[in-house]
Computed example of a mutant assay.
Amino acid sequence: MAGTLYLIPNTLGQTEAQQAHLLAQIIPDTVQKMTSELTHFVAENAKTTRAFLKLLSQTHPLAKPMQELSITELNVNTPAAALDALLSPLLLGHDVGLISEAGVPAVADPGANLVRLAHQRQIQVRPLVGPSSLLLALMASGLNGQSFAFHGYLPTDAGLRAKRIKELEERSRKESQTQLLIETPYRNAAMLEALANTAAPSTLICVATDLTLESESIQTLSAAEWKKRLQANQAPDFHKKPTVFLFLAN
């Protein structure tokens, strides 16, 4: 009988203290316990996964010593032909945990390809509860949570990025739909500047940074207000910090 593919939530970033009691505020205890009992993992980043498991082991002893756990990487560079091999432990009857570098796996994450293949192989997939930066940002934004769309990364070219923002803003206005974006953390400032300068003055823009961490910051302002703040050198403290951008046109 094939094992179960568990979709394991990771933190959205760990504190310097790496304290286990803080983990309990983010990941349910039952999920921590189930994770600690697994011996096979497919991870976007093995190093990040080991750090997470080390933190978890402070309150939930691992099934095996860390060096004996099987942790295989699956990231954007993994060829499609390698996915079958990642399912091998499952077909041999082992349960496997799919874990993202941050947040929930298979959402804006290469793990989605493995989940799709697991369904094709009739392997049971079980998602576990944990933090999603996209949903947390949407919840806290005050924007439309009934209709929304996530678009990932926009073009890095300034002209193409502005064009895409205009397209999404028109869609937002027409459908009253919240638009969600992410950016490489060191380009956060460029993204907010592009949104503030391209969007209509009344369009609402939310910047959600370091969600669930002590440095968490969530601000929703009009494009006009963001533009004023940027001109006054009052940008959010979000340089090199994971950030979700959301906007809703009136």
Score class of each variant (00 low, 15 high):
71 I>C: 04
190 A>N: 08
179 Q>E: 15
102 A>D: 12
184 T>A: 14
103 G>C: 09
102 A>R: 12
179 Q>T: 12
84 D>K: 05
133 S>G: 10
148 F>C: 00
134 L>D: 04
153 Y>P: 08
90 L>G: 07
74 L>H: 04
129 V>E: 08
102 A>P: 07
132 S>W: 12
133 S>R: 09
194 A>R: 12
74 L>D: 05
175 E>M: 06
170 E>Q: 15
146 Q>M: 09
118 A>C: 09
167 E>Y: 12
176 S>M: 11
57 S>P: 11
109 D>Y: 07
159 G>D: 09
168 L>T: 13
94 H>T: 01
95 D>R: 07
129 V>S: 14
190 A>P: 00
118 A>E: 03
122 Q>F: 03
88 S>G: 00
136 L>K: 00
83 L>F: 13
70 S>W: 00
129 V>Y: 00
165 I>K: 09
130 G>Q: 06
126 R>G: 00
119 H>W: 15
61 P>V: 02
151 H>D: 04
171 R>N: 14
127 P>E: 07
88 S>Q: 14
110 P>V: 02
85 A>K: 13
71 I>D: 04
188 N>C: 10
140 A>Y: 07
182 I>R: 07
77 N>H: 15
60 H>W: 09
59 T>F: 00
87 L>N: 08
71 I>N: 08
75 N>I: 01
131 P>K: 01
141 S>A: 13
131 P>T: 03
149 A>R: 10
76 V>P: 00
59 T>W: 00
115 V>M: 08
190 A>W: 02
148 F>D: 02
73 E>L: 01
179 Q>F: 01
117 L>F: 05
153 Y>G: 07
134 L>S: 06
160 L>D: 14
130 G>E: 08
163 K>E: 14
135 L>F: 14
166 K>T: 14
56 L>H: 06
174 K>Y: 11
117 L>W: 01
149 A>H: 10
177 Q>W: 10
128 L>D: 02
191 M>C: 08
172 S>F: 13
113 N>S: 14
117 L>T: 01
181 L>M: 05
142 G>R: 12
108 A>M: 04
117 L>V: 04
126 R>A: 02
144 N>I: 03
71 I>L: 11
99 I>W: 02
117 L>K: 12
184 T>E: 06
90 L>M: 05
109 D>C: 00
60 H>S: 09
137 A>V: 03
151 H>K: 00
158 A>P: 08
151 H>C: 01
58 Q>S: 09
53 L>D: 03
95 D>T: 03
115 V>I: 05
64 K>C: 03
138 L>D: 13
154 L>P: 13
75 N>A: 03
99 I>D: 06
95 D>C: 01
169 E>F: 05
131 P>E: 05
98 L>D: 08
64 K>L: 15
178 T>D: 08
75 N>S: 02
72 T>W: 01
164 R>D: 11
110 P>I: 01
182 I>A: 03
63 A>Q: 10
91 L>V: 04
107 V>D: 00
56 L>P: 07
99 I>H: 09
56 L>M: 04
181 L>N: 11
87 L>G: 10
177 Q>L: 07
59 T>S: 15
146 Q>L: 12
57 S>C: 02
75 N>Y: 02
139 M>H: 11
145 G>R: 07
57 S>H: 08
103 G>M: 06
